[in-house]
Design a binder for these strands. Structure first.
Lengths: 236, 236, 236, 236
DNA sequence: ACATACGGGACAGCCCGTTACT
DNA sequence: AGTAACGGGCTGTCCCGTATGT
């Protein structure tokens, strides 16, 4: 029974590794069960971490949640959407490729767990302004990346007639909604269908259909040029 | 003690009224806070119902949740989407009108609480198969109503080239996703943007752009005609 | 839809039958699960009786419990012990026959549920004086019947040297204890063993071993003749 | 607020003391009221322990119950029966001494609470297999200790003609049953009576009455030599 | 940095009994 | 006689966070 003097048990003192393990487990559990149904105890158990250690790295569950959003969910969006889009031949190709890739992964798994960002957005947006802000930032980065890629295509002929910002919002919404339907039906079908609809749309656009402002939400003669972002309401 | 000796409170046996009150309060709280963050106690307090009475009508929270989905959320979808769509001049008009109507309501409120169905879908689909089934049924009824309306237009010239089922899925997804973005940003902007994109799409379609199957998710030469619904995966 | 005017549903108005059904179910559930773990709701469900009807016949759970003891458990003791003993050739034969009969029944069932009287005695004696009194009365009747039968044998030569009251107490105790062991081990073995020990004892007695007072609990030279019953302490 | 700012209550980390306190209180309450009628809240109150602390040491009531059986009831049997038996001059003396000792203690108290092991056995054997197993183990250890002691006497002349295992079962059963009667009657009388009967039995045996197998439960010509333990029924 | 012990306060569910009604 | 709505209160469990200890 030789004791390592100040470390009686299998204690590693590898803070980064432990932090990473906790974040991984938390991200996974928040994704598959949701934030509220996941207890701190679940996380300590799965990550094989004591409560003390967990609270050392993340003083409250909320802080852990924010870290998951900023360090895991944001990364997932980066890897799933932003990088593929940027390295694709064209914006439209990239978007469709992402759909295809996501669908392929879905069909490997036995459960459709949905989009991590969207899941947390639904559960947490209203409960806490900090959560909402973090989530919104990820959504915005996602949207902006798509918009940017579309714009970078336009000089060379792709999707010329498109308002990049507005269309990016539409793509993100379609994907999120399709994923929501997929989750509710536990079937990748809705994602496929939406991908096809977007593909049709791209095809139509490529054939150069001129797009004008024929529809205004607010009133018949609204100012066409404005995109989604501007009008921000102050949060309560 | 000073009060009516044999009738401590104004107790009247009005089961339907009580049930309605509970469902209303539960639907409201599930919508604005979510299912898990809402405690049974919150509901008893807001509905001014004793725990015993609540338990008599809804033995478990899950039963209450299912009743809310089937009797309140389903009705909300009916009133917000299905009825307006059916009574509109054309499917496309109806869809855009619903968007407009929802946006108008959103701008009256100080908080964007999101689509009740979508919120519950995200929170509960994975946690319980009965929840998922109920939610899926509402989504399906919503989608089918839109598809049906589109089909009923097509003989008279509207959206002829469209696959009604697929397009209905796309509309539902776009709306759900737009609402998710609106909730995350606490701004109706995403809804407006998506409405405009759909409007453009309708306009393009009306100009008769032929739509063919140019995009296949599974492989390049898929069978064009199939819609979303069919392929159901068996649930675990 | 022809309605029996004043009896909207399948309502029989057979008070005795209903009372009997409730008592049967309650006796069964109290026996197999115990008094406290059995809820009124369990009984209403199993007896297919509404809560109101149950409370009409038995205003409280305690009253139901007392009725079970007095009308079911007491009867069970009568049928299992008293009648067989009285109709046996000799007291000792009767006692052993009862053991044999109980063991035979035990081996048919897949669960050893114990002696109903003893079960309720352990659970309820201390919690309520009325329960205790009822239970004690059944025990006493049981004991007295055995003692009486022994005495009726003694003129004709059986177990002459025996103090009938004391020995009856011993028999009841041995049976109860053996049943307790049988319940704890879920095996009829202890009952068999105790039956054999009693059989040996009877055999020894028949060979006329004179029994004197060699053992006194209180002090070395106690007054031999007194039996169990006498000193009653007042209940708190 | 007026108190020591950083240490709201006198909190001292003494896990063993706290655990002991909880077990003591639980054992006492389970003994005097029973397992089911004792609420966790009762225990926290009496042991002056917070619910959180209790849950830390015993995550569920069942775990607490098992700990009480294994660490308190088992010990009580050890101290009350096994040790006295082992340190007595002879098995029969030891057995009778235990009865005397128990009776003496009973007469000091104002309430006959029964044998802790037997009480829990009746209440819990059927409700949970883990409970039953734990209880059975204590019973078995008790029985085996007596049997062992009897065997160790036999070479030197005591109770030669006895089957130690069978007789030990009989002793345990008689004691348990006597205690049950004592509890039901709130009087030590049944215990005294049974002690006397056993004393008589010992006296008879010492006079060397030969004991043969005259009684068979199963059938007239059973195999005499078999003891209680062997035949175990498989638990459901 | 990490571990254990502990504090309070919810949580969902269930309990027994009563009251209004047929 | 019998039904169904209803009243409160309590049960066991679990929660998140902090304090203490190493």
């Amino acid at each position: 029974m030789i004791e390592h003097p100040s470390q009686p048990r299998g204690r590693k003192n590898e803070p980064e590794a432990m932090r990473r393990r906790v974040l991984d487990v938390a991200a996974e559990l928040f994704h598959s069960r949701g934030y509220h149904p996941t207890s701190m105890h679940d996380i300590t158990r799965e990550a094989r971490v004591t409560s003390g250690a967990l609270h050392h790295h993340f003083p409250t569950k909320k802080m852990l949640g924010l870290a998951v959003i900023q360090e895991r969910v944001a990364n997932a969006v980066e890897e799933t959407w932003i990088n593929p889009i940027n390295s694709a031949h064209a914006a439209s190709d990239g978007i469709l490729a992402v759909f295809r890739q996501v669908i392929a992964q879905l069909e490997k798994r036995r459960e459709v767990k949905g989009c991590p960002l969207n899941n947390l957005a639904m559960e947490l947006s209203l409960s806490d302004p900090e959560f909402r802000t973090s989530i919104e930032a990820v959504f915005e980065r996602w949207r902006a990346s798509i918009a940017c890629r579309i714009r970078s295509d336009q000089p060379t002929g792709g999707l010329k007639s498109l308002d990049a910002d507005r269309f990016a919002t539409f793509v993100v919404a379609s994907y999120s909604g399709a994923m929501a339907l997929a989750k509710a039906s536990q079937d990748a079908g809705p994602l496929k269908t939406c991908a096809e609809q977007l593909a049709d749309l791209f095809a139509g656009l490529r054939r150069g259909a001129p797009r004008g402002r024929r529809f205004r939400v607010d009133d018949p003669r609204g100012t066409p040029g404005r995109a989604t972002r501007p009008a921000r309401r102050k949060q309560v």
